[in-house]
Write a protein that binds this DNA or RNA. Structure first.
Lengths: 101, 101
DNA sequence: CAGTTTTTTGACAATTTAAGGCAAAAATAC
DNA sequence: GTATTTTTGCCTTAAATTGTCAAAAAACTG
């Protein structure tokens, strides 16, 4: 249960890379990458996939980390977060079944 | 497990009001209200509370309906929605416990 | 069925929100 | 203490979402 940022930082360190190098490889500003790693900016899906490729990570795993960050972020400070997630789960199931009328 | 829009439409009909009247009472454009009821626009939190007051509904209930709509909407078409919600739940719990460093 | 009221739609303007980018500051390593 | 790396702040930009108005469509009413 790691945040997207933690994951990509771990991977970068593990490979002994500095931000500058990752920036060069991905064509993303190094300050921006720093912010991703510290969870101060949220990348687009395309960028998530870029990182998955760069670090040889399973795409699904990384996307789950990234999307769940977003959801959790939207609910931060919400007393009702728990209830909201349970209801959202039902709604997602319902939509998956019956489509979106 | 109703959508926010369904709820406020039900309530309006139940009271025999037309959009024009609700628009006057809330100072929201009637086209906008129509869109809320059809889930084509998402109101702000303030407006959700306005509707709670207008229709004498429990605020929490309405907010849960509204927020869960948002979450479910973000995850529509996401094959991984289920997994995402489970992870998000853990993250929310974690944040609630340890704050947001 | 014509006339009236209500609801919906569509295009556009306005707002809001979040991200990208640069340069300076801070931290870390050498 | 210098050099490198990382972080921060600010600002611009871009994207997404909403509100608004007018016209079209739909639903009532007599």
């Amino acid at each position: 249960m790691k945040a997207f940022g933690e994951i990509i930082r771990e991977q970068r360190i593990k490979r002994g890379l500095v931000l500058r190098q990752v920036a060069a490889a991905t064509d993303i500003d190094q300050a921006t990458i720093s912010k991703y790693e510290k969870c101060e900016r949220k990348p687009s899906k395309m960028q998530v996939l870029q990182f998955a490729k760069l670090y040889n990570l399973d795409q699904d795993t990384l996307i789950v980390a990234w999307l769940s960050d977003k959801v959790a972020y939207d609910l931060q400070n919400e007393r009702l977060a728990d209830k909201v997630l349970k209801v959202a789960e039902q709604k997602v199931k319902y939509i998956a079944k019956n489509g979106h009328k």
